[in-house]
Write a protein that binds this DNA or RNA. Structure first.
Length: 492
RNA sequence: GUCCCCGUCGUCUAGAGGCCCAGGACGCUGGCCUUUCAAGCCGGUAACACGGGUUCGAAUCCCGUCGGGGACACCA
């Protein structure tokens, strides 16, 4: 028997525009691995002027929820990944929810049944479970033994409507293989495959069945998904063969691992949640930048814009090794992006974080100057908001250590001089304020630090802040003077 | 257990037989700059899992060992 193989050059039939898809099962939030899969598919479509389809594989009826559908879509939108066909964007292959395509699956399973390439199976879950257990006890791995393979009709006391439909593996020797765009040729002997369930008794398809039917009907040319799916590619290939369909190309993406080196999972790894990062102040540009670099690179480039991704990304450059989640690098990238994006944009994104701290920040004229001063001192929007909050409130809590060091003795004299100087200023600007501090430093013959630190502690309560002129300006004239006076009073 | 995939600094990676006594980035670290903290700049630390081949020559090809991960459902 000749082993089944992909045609030598699958590309021949897809010269230009690829049709790719992201097919999540809506059983929770958007997973970071899913987000990367979606991103890569999206980039592929963008690069070659193709189509990116989102299809909801909602056939797990107990776990699928409408909220999850929304959560996944929201996550994609936040990341700036938009789809050409899918939920809310009905296209020529609608509907894009598998539970709305049940007639299609039934039709194709009937055909397979009629052609003798599938059969009804009456085994009960309990029976199968028992078989599996005993098989596992004796060592080997479980394969459905084909109990119902040659049944002519339902066994006594059973009805056809209770049967599931199984794929009938052709009894051939040899191996199946496919040429994965990322991994290369992967092979498996036919003998490792069994008669898997395609359709439940209620007509709901199982993953391997619905996936193949839809990918073909939606004219998908390249299936890119996580490496956890390489093994399911084989039964799927058998289905394509049975149906006489040309399989798409495949690209299996390296897994993303948690700090414990295990596949990033919703259960064990909170960072698997895309929207968690939004809440902690990571920006979508940074998250997608980070995630695209897991398993893919373009020379030595680290900070990569969406435009560059669209220009450079290709599945054949995707690596083979799983990558470990590195929070430090994500943080670094996020800061890079805070420095790269227009300050007005970052300011806008900062508002919700400030509001969460109880400040009416929207429209505040200090927002942009704040971002300007703080973007080099914060790695997340949340961090920036925490620092920014210092300038929004009234009064400040002095750090005891800082006060003990900088708000005593001669420092208070210097502070007094600065206070008088800035109070006399007709206009507060970074330059004029810095000028006062400089003048005090020179007239008193002490270093800038001697003068600036007491002021800094008085304004922020601590020893770290942006340049002293900026700090004063950010606090605002009235509040700055009030805080200096409070420090003076306390100290002297 | 069986099958599949993988194996370069702690982490993400460059590397497609000589350009590599292995390059970049994060982290860590020394210095410069400096009114603090950052940012920035300059420098340092640290890896081809192991063993056999093939070859004039291997991180790159082959085999084995070990190690890691994934999949083994009427989940996807």
């Amino acid at each position: 028997m000749t082993p089944y193989r992909l045609p030598a050059n699958p590309r021949a039939r897809m010269p230009t525009a690829p049709r790719v898809r992201f097919a999540p099962s809506p059983t929770g939030y958007l997973h970071i691995g899913g987000a990367r899969t979606a991103l890569m598919n999206y980039l592929q479509a963008r690069r070659f002027g193709g189509t990116f389809i989102v299809r909801m594989e909602d056939t797990d009826r107990v776990r699928s929820t409408a909220e999850s559908v929304q959560a996944i879509l929201d996550g994609l939108v936040w990341l700036g990944i938009d789809w050409t066909e899918g939920p809310g964007k009905e296209g020529p292959h609608a509907p894009y929810f598998q539970t709305q395509r049940l007639d299609t699956y039934r039709e194709h399973s009937q055909r397979l049944l009629a052609e003798g390439k599938a059969y009804r199976c009456y085994c009960t879950k309990q029976d199968l479970e028992a078989q599996r257990e005993s098989m596992e006890k004796s060592g080997g791995f479980y394969k459905y033994p084909g109990t119902c393979r040659d049944l002519k009709g339902p066994p006594a006391g059973r009805r056809e409507e209770e049967a599931v439909i199984r794929f009938k593996m052709p009894s051939t020797e040899g191996t199946v293989s496919f040429d994965d765009k990322a991994l290369g040729v992967i092979t498996k002997p036919y003998s490792d495959l069994d008669d898997w369930v395609m359709l439940r008794a209620d007509g709901i398809p199982l993953y391997n069945f619905g996936c193949v039917i839809d990918d073909h009907l939606m004219e998908i040319t390249l299936v890119a998904r996580g490496q956890e799916h390489v093994n399911s590619t084989f039964p799927q290939l058998m289905l394509y063969q049975a149906l006489g369909w040309q399989p798409p190309e495949f690209a299996h993406l390296p897994l993303i691992l948690g700090p414990d080196r295990e596949k990033l999972s919703k259960r064990k790894h909170p960072e698997a949640d895309v929207m968690l990062h939004k809440r902690t102040g990571i920006m979508p540009e940074a998250l997608s930048n980070f995630v695209i670099r897991l398993g893919w690179s373009h020379g030595n480039d680290e900070v990569i814009t969406r435009e560059q991704m669209e220009e450079w990304f290709d599945f054949s450059d995707v690596g083979t090794t799983s990558g470990v989640w590195n929070p430090e690098k994500l943080l670094w990238l996020n800061q890079q992006w805070m420095k790269l994006l227009p300050e007005a944009t970052v300011a806008e994104r900062l508002v919700p974080f400030l509001e969460a701290k109880g400040f009416q920040a929207k429209g505040d004229s200090r927002l942009v100057p704040l971002v300007h001063a703080l973007k080099e001192r914060a790695r997340t929007l949340e961090e920036m908001a925490t620092t920014a909050a210092l300038y929004f409130g009234t009064g400040v809590t002095l750090d005891e250590k800082a006060a003990a060091k900088h708000l005593v003795g001669d420092s208070l004299v210097l502070l007094r001089k600065v206070r008088d100087g800035v109070a006399a200023l007709s206009e507060w600007t970074v330059e004029s304020l810095d000028g006062v501090v400089k003048a005090v430093s020179e007239s008193s013959s002490v270093g800038m630090g001697k003068v600036a630190q007491p002021v800094r502690v008085a304004i922020t309560g601590n020893t770290t802040s942006p340049g002293i002129g900026e700090t004063l300006l950010l606090a605002g004239r009235d509040e700055a003077l009030r805080r200096i006076d409070a420090a003076l009073t306390r100290g002297g």
